[in-house]
Amino acid sequence: MSPNGQTRGGKVTASDNLYTVILALAFCVVLATAVFVAYKCHFQYDTIFEIP
């Protein structure tokens, strides 16, 4: 896996690290969403998993 672009059959392609970064970004987005939802639940209902 090279950080630079790879040339496959004469075409320029992105390196694999880029997809890793995209995947990490997706993970961060999901994590931030989960944290935001947890914060809102705790702020509004004083609990995260129980039904008040």
């Binding site: 997809y19 995947l23 987005v29 931030a32 939802v37 809102k40």
Partner: peptide, 21 residues
């Protein structure tokens, strides 16, 4: 799949954040 997962995650998380907000 990674690209689709990322796009769908961002889209769904945006929907969830918008709904929760």
């Amino acid at each position: 799949l990674i690209v689709l997962l990322t796009i769908s995650s961002i889209f769904l998380c945006g929907i969830v954040v918008t709904y929760v907000a």
